[in-house]
Design a protein around this nucleic acid. Structure first.
Lengths: 245, 245
DNA sequence: AATAATAAACGTAAATATGACGTTTGTAAA
DNA sequence: TTTACAAACGTCATATTTACGTTTATTATT
């Protein structure tokens, strides 16, 4: 039982986006496709998270930021390192071995997994060089490596985190309706919330600011728009140690 | 900017223990000491977390469990992987370079950090071959590597986690008083709690079971003893999605 | 121009939880 | 027997939550 001598270090990014039209919490995935040169059989045909090796001179955070920028062009998005995955057998799947055939893959690969929060519409998937595509988090396609597990754990972490910190607003446009916020909570948590109670609770928050603006182009009573004030949130926020076990 | 070729992978364990007598949340640390053979100057004299390389054939979790067992003899303690630390400059401190002189330390070292929860009295520090010692989390000694930061981040994670999951009971004896629980919350969170309100709240929980037993050997009114029922907690527990932002 | 359809927005009453305190009780030691 | 003191119990005002019912503003239809 010798300590490892050679390892491979990467970051993987679970990119969450929210589409206010379809009311769906999405994950951004990229296509893997490979067919045999001789038999023309399809060897690999699935999706994976975006990720890459960590460069020698960059921090883990910088590496994740770089990967997100490469995929989406975006910087300054909410980012959280939520777990490291590094079990010795994590890339032993046949398809994955085929896919990485041109790399020294008798190495152990450790990946530091991050999730990012952004708005679905901020990414131009139609002109994406990686063929990136959004998938609803509850209707994922076949996934390579252990990326199904990584996404599930990211989603669990997001569920917990959105209950205690106002990160939900990272997924919404600057101007949103109360119902947008409710729909998003329902998408993330997979629950139904009473609209009247939710509305009252949210409107009473000092950091939810009503704007002099309403929805336009809807065929029903147009909803009031609001914004989230991070400044006010920070000022009034002394960590509110509510024991909720 | 080439990807890393050679890395070092380790786990580090923040071992939290609670001493119901001193009412102190403690961290278990091991001694580092090294003096120059020629000048007899003290080169390194501080404490560090316990940690070790990850073996080739073990998972990260197994590695952390092994390290804890090696240090304390204990298995089956509450364990959480909370963060990976792997910035390129994280072990560039002079003392640390001296300490690891006999290893190839021009490698980058990634450490997967875990914390464990146990009872201070379960560890026999007087006969510990690593000279392990408990330190109150708010009175830490000088620490090597980036272990100060790792402990602080573990403590922050513990603060958040103990508010939403009943992990506090992992730090307490099987039979405890209501005041034990309160004291422990106060130690972890660094706040004061009103005893009468806290008591009412806790006693109303179905999974806090009063025993037919009281404290013995105290020189005041002996307190009622309780136990925590994980079974009842799990049964009644459908994740109680309280949005608390 | 009136009406229907519908989501947005407002309202209410009971039950539960919280925050801020005061009071009583059981034990060992004086 | 008394005293010291933490344990344990009690109270009241306020805030929050739960579970609903009602009104309103808009577009589309008649």
């Amino acid at each position: 039982m010798e300590p490892n001598k050679i390892l491979n270090l990467s970051v993987d990014c679970v990119v969450f986006g929210y589409d206010t039209n379809t009311k769906s919490l999405n994950v951004l995935l990229i296509k893997r496709y490979l067919e045999s040169e001789t038999t023309k059989d399809v060897l690999v045909n699935d999706y994976v998270l975006t990720g890459y090796h960590v460069y020698e001179d960059e921090t883990l955070d910088e590496s994740a930021t770089r990967v997100l920028k490469e995929l989406t062009g975006l910087t300054n998005q909410y980012k959280k390192q939520f777990k490291a995955f590094g079990n010795p057998d994590r890339l032993s799947n046949k398809k994955d071995l085929i896919w990485v055939q041109n790399q020294e893959f008798n190495l152990r690969t450790i990946t530091i997994a991050y999730y990012f929060l952004l708005k679905t519409e901020d990414v131009d998937v139609d002109n994406n060089k990686y063929e990136a595509k959004w998938f609803p988090v509850r209707e994922l396609p076949e996934l390579g490596f252990d990326h199904q597990q990584i996404i599930e754990e990211a989603h669990e972490d997001l569920k917990t985190k959105c209950l205690v910190e106002p990160i939900i607003f990272e997924l919404l446009p600057d101007k949103f309706t109360i119902n947008d916020v409710q729909d998003l909570y329902e998408s993330i948590l997979g629950i139904e919330i009473d609209n009247r109670n939710f509305r009252r609770k949210l409107i009473n928050k000092k950091y939810i600011i009503p704007l002099d603006e309403k929805q336009v182009g809807v065929s029903k009573k147009p909803a009031q728009l609001y914004m989230f004030s991070k400044d006010i949130y920070k000022k009034m926020y002394h960590k509110n140690y509510l024991i909720n076990i």
